[in-house]
Nucleic acid binder design. Structure first.
Length: 285
DNA sequence: CTCCGGTAAA
DNA sequence: TTTACCGGAG
């Protein structure tokens, strides 16, 4: 329905490498490095490829990643910016997986400023998975009000019950196990793994989509390139620094690379950003 | 009024 | 790939 003026980049995922003279990685790496691959998918099973001409459509996202020098520049600048400007948020003072989960579920569709007081109130009332699991779901929903999307407290409650029943009251750190909970999707699983368990797991929320698309891609509809952006998000994490990198890129998206009127003039990425200078006033083309 | 947003389901 | 879910902000 909403095609509009946006060109669909699905047509040729490889084209954008052509207009950069420094050239992104060309080597083909068919090993799926994405730890979020669907369960059961392995190198063994072979996709039907009876039409070689059309097979080219399927994206080799690993072949479109930035070169190491560009990745390093982005990483260095982001971490430096985050050290200086990162926000001091309540859920950054803890690594308790329960606290991280509560914050992430609240933050899924609700702004930081509205989440902060409710985060404290909720944890005061339900200090652990066990206490949340024991509470009537109707009470949990009342405590949740007025955050909205009220399926979330129901799912949070069911996560608590399952965590107590099947995991001894502690959240698992395995990606597929996390994804098996109703209410934990790919973003939240990555957030839990990186923020609670300090793993180098990728995240992709709208902030990250916006930042990575602007800096590294700059064409097409960002939301239509999720698999490529997931691969980018994963490939950019400096080894051992998933926590700071992920927190940093979300703060950066919220504070500098904002959806409207980004602060391009003070942006540390301006010299490497494919979108700089962003001009909100004109329609892009 | 319109826009925004992770997950699950269609 | 599109949409329902809820509230708040612009």
């Amino acid at each position: 329905m909403g095609e509009g003026a946006l060109v669909n980049e699905k047509a040729d995922p490889g084209s954008w490498t052509n207009h950069r003279e420094d050239g992104f990685v060309r080597s083909f790496d068919f090993a799926p490095r994405d730890s979020y691959n669907a369960a059961g998918q392995g190198p063994i099973d072979m996709p039907r490829q009876s039409r070689p001409a059309r097979a080219r459509r399927k994206k080799n996202v690993d072949a479109q990643l930035p070169p190491p020098s560009l990745k390093r520049a982005f990483q260095r600048r982001l971490l430096a910016w985050y050290r200086e400007h990162g926000r001091d948020l309540p859920w950054r003072k803890t690594s308790d997986p329960y606290h991280i989960l509560v914050s992430e579920v609240m933050l899924q569709q609700t702004q930081v400023d509205r989440v902060i007081p409710k985060y404290h109130e909720f944890l005061e009332r339900y200090p652990s998975f066990a206490e949340l699991a024991d509470a009537p779901v109707s009470d949990v929903k009342k405590t949740w009000y007025p955050l909205g999307y009220n399926i979330r407290p129901e799912r949070l409650h069911s996560i608590a019950r399952e965590t107590v029943a099947r995991y001894g009251g502690s959240l698992p750190n395995d990606a597929d196990e996390l994804l098996s909970f109703k209410g934990i999707g790919r973003y939240t699983a990555g957030a839990i793994r990186s923020f609670a368990f300090n793993e180098d797991a990728p995240i992709l929320d709208t902030n990250v989509i916006r930042v990575l698309h602007r800096v590294f891609i700059a064409e097409g509809d960002p939301k239509a390139q999720k698999s490529r952006l997931w691969a980018l998000s994963e490939s950019l994490i400096p080894r051992g620094k998933g926590y700071d990198f992920n927190q940093g890129i979300m703060d950066f998206g919220a504070m500098v690379c904002t959806a409207r009127d980004p602060y391009c003039l003070l942006c540390p990425m301006k010299s490497i950003c494919k979108t700089y200078p962003f001009d909100a006033g004109t329609n892009g083309s």
